[in-house]
Design a protein around this nucleic acid. Structure first.
Lengths: 216, 216, 216, 216
DNA sequence: CATGAATGAGTCTTCATTCAT
DNA sequence: AATGAATGAAGACTCATTCAT
């Protein structure tokens, strides 16, 4: 942030994509502190160390900047678990764990980003936009998890319920991380998920192999 | 909405508490539709069929109206599970189920109210207020659940983790209810929670006694 | 303007129509000084001695204020000549003179208003709006003048050309009034029109009865 | 629009005067469509197919570009009638007709240019600039017309009034051309002026020699 | 000569709050 | 207790102008 390492001269001209990312990064920070309602364009630009006119230059409107910010988060997360899902070298349980624990990767599940996710979820307008945007991802992800669950021995019906439970626990732990950062942290979240999986598949997710002992 | 049964005259003068509740009810509706950022005082008052000046008369500021709205939700929920928790006639497993399923009671877990909860969670400012407000409740609730878990046979250490998992699943299912109302409903949520408890206490929460067969 | 004769208290509440007219009056003044491009809402409101928010309260947008201002001018003028046109007690030549000289009535043809007319004519957007608005008026007016010309002895074909000439001279004199106020004034304009009519109908518009000797 | 016959390379470097005229031409088009208030420098440069910085390079400021545009129109028109006025081979009536009908020459009196004239007339600022700029021209032109009128037999007093009437009709017909292009066209305008002159000098401007039969 | 990204002052508009009635 | 016109600060957005390349 702030690229204080660049002198004023070099800051005057930067590739379009660099500027857009600077603004998105600043937006993430400001939303995490002020919420969507409290985020003003001038806060974003001054946080980015840029002038007010740049948002309109690169994103046309504030709304478009916010959508682009949410899209950035959504794509970043989706790419992470899609990587796991399409990795043919992994076993079923490695895939399951990889897809779920992607949500708790240290660069995905930062305090800033989790707050921003929930900031957007709180706004009906962006909820609609989010749903449209991730509709395909979400189905794909639920199907991927269900497939693995079946491979691990569940019936298709059972699998649907387990998907809902697993997705639920992941989302709920995110909320706990945001609301009670002193009560729970990322590593604990992973343990909670692992232990839950242990309840479903005691052999594949042994308590003796809890994630603090697992490369995530 | 509201007092269509009162003639205009009697509406002109109503007890303070009635007016405040009318405004809170209208606020719940508007926030659920527009989010916190999109909620204006004039939308709230016109939704309530009242004049603009009333918010300042009864709540002094908009911020105070919003806090009161969040407080209303928090108290309503807390009273519900506290009722269960203090009911000496219930067994341990009835208490556990009662406390958790309070979150999914039809009048607590409406689409409108769930959206409002997340709307507030998305705003850093109200998150802070919420934490202060429910700090006591939350500890109390976590302790109550942990106590029951110990009574049901878990070790204190185990219980802490289970509390986090149970609270997580409840919150996560709320988020699913909000984001994907076509994918999951209240009754399914209860089944998911029940089945999770079944994993922990197979005898106490038998699959044959799933909540669709249980009075909540 | 400025209603300095009202004390601040009485200024706080005025009928909607009074406020709208105050704002339109102020808009006329500002446009006449700065043109449409130079007119800002804050100039208008401070000229009216009112606060910035009032334009949006009473006119919703600046564009709507400008349209209302143009409409005010158009209706004011149209009502004036329609009064003459529908007056059954007038002779044909009195009607003709009355309709044309309405454009040069002292309260219609002020420096301020003439400048505003041309300010709007200079803006393509308002030209379109104006045309739609006065379409009916204009046809009616041209027909009314043509009818009188026929009554005075012209053939219908001749009358069309005379209407164009008469309307042209009236508009052109307005432009001269605006551009060269030191070279020509309202009274001279009326004489020019009278003398033109004299060329067409020497008996009805005798030079010896020039408008400085005529009640307009 | 413009220099499609030049290859991109040669467009990158063009003589100062060519660039200035390109920008003035683009300005005429944009003003005619959007009015002065709606004309932005970026619209002008993109219409001209040039980059944003060129206006500041060639005209220093937008205001100066607009003044130059108005000056271009004024000079173009003045040169046209001055040509006639100084032509010693013409008779008095040919001169009178030539000076007046210069305003209706097809390349002077285009829809675009007429709209631009009125766009400038609508702006107080440019009205002042225009008056200063054409002051000399205008006096000269009024004197030239008056001289001819005297030569044709009018008294000096009479001539002043006739000048005002003739200038008025010419300006008024321009306004009609702009506001009601479906009602009147250039050729009709000339006929109206000719017929008006016929009223003053029946022998010199015979109806049988109306301008559709006259080389303009 | 020419480019176009960047700037930032200026505008329109929104909206929480006030207050005379 | 209630009204709603009025206020004015604050925000999003525009756009003439600058300047490094």
């Amino acid at each position: 942030m702030m690229d204080g390492n660049l002198d004023p001269k070099s800051r005057r001209f930067a590739p379009k994509e660099v500027r857009k990312q600077q603004l998105i990064d600043a937006t993430l920070e400001v939303i995490s502190e002020k919420g969507v309602s409290g985020t003003t364009t001038s806060q974003v630009t001054s946080r980015a160390g840029l002038s007010a006119g740049l948002i309109s230059l690169h994103f046309k409107t504030k709304d478009n900047l916010l959508r682009s910010t949410l899209e950035y988060l959504a794509v970043e997360l989706a790419e992470r678990w899609q990587e796991v899902q399409t990795d043919e070298t992994l076993t079923s349980e490695e895939k399951l764990w990889g897809i779920i624990s992607a949500s708790f990767a240290p660069d995905i599940c930062t305090h800033v980003k989790v707050r921003v996710w929930f900031a957007f979820f709180g706004e009906a307008e962006y909820r609609g936009f989010y749903r449209e945007m991730v509709e395909k991802f979400d189905t794909e992800r639920a199907d991927a998890i269900a497939d693995v669950l079946v491979e691990l021995g569940q019936s298709p019906d059972e699998a649907l319920g387990t998907v809902q439970t697993i997705e639920g626990i992941a989302d709920g732990l995110w909320l706990s991380l945001m609301l009670y950062p002193d009560w729970i942290d990322i590593e604990t979240c992973k343990i909670r998920v692992w232990n839950l999986l242990n309840k479903y598949f005691p052999d594949r997710f042994a308590l003796s192999a809890q994630p603090d002992a697992v490369t995530s």
